[in-house]
Amino acid sequence: MIMAAACIVPASAMAQEVGDWVLSPWRGSSVFYPGVVESRSGSVITVRFDDGDVETRQADTVVPFDWQAGSRISCAWSDGKWYKATIRSIAADGYTMQIRYDDDGTVENTNTGRCRTR
């Protein structure tokens, strides 16, 4: 009997080309922030985060952007602190979204640059 070998490709291998929207840790943190791959040189990419910051890192440290309605994230509130929330909807631009904070049920329109995920 001949068995076909399964080819498992890490998700990060699919999110490394210029223009790809990704989730990337900022400076080695354990949380991921949304951004776009701005450039690539071998296994090193530069990510422009949705809040405007830029960082160069190994391509295998990013994953494809997968946020959608129902995704669990954390977002910055007006007091500057991070609070857990659920995405209610994301606009066609992929950047503007409506979220609902877990703590008090407040619904807010925000953008991906003010949010992060684990």
Rank of each mutant, 00 (worst) to 15 (best):
A92M: 06
E108H: 15
S12G: 09
D103G: 03
V44N: 11
I87Y: 00
I73A: 00
S39F: 07
G19H: 04
V44P: 00
S29Q: 10
F32V: 04
T96M: 01
I90M: 11
D104C: 05
Q58G: 14
T56D: 07
V54W: 06
S29L: 10
T46W: 06
V47E: 04
G52D: 06
T106H: 04
R118E: 08
T56I: 10
S43F: 12
I87S: 01
Y33W: 14
S39Q: 10
A5D: 13
P34H: 06
W26M: 05
A13M: 14
T56R: 08
Q58S: 13
G52Q: 09
A5Q: 11
S43C: 05
W67F: 10
A76W: 06
G105S: 08
A13V: 09
R100Q: 13
D79P: 15
T110E: 10
D20M: 03
S43A: 09
V63D: 02
R114V: 03
T117R: 05
D104M: 03
Q58Y: 13
A85F: 02
C75I: 12
P64G: 01
N111H: 13
R88N: 13
G28I: 11
A91W: 12
A15L: 07
V63Q: 02
G94N: 12
M14Q: 10
M14N: 12
M3N: 10
F32W: 05
I99E: 01
G105Y: 01
A4G: 06
A4T: 09
A59T: 00
I87M: 00
D102I: 02
A59H: 04
D53K: 15
D60W: 05
T61A: 02
D51P: 04
G105V: 03
Y95T: 07
M97Y: 08
V47H: 01
T106G: 04
S89F: 03
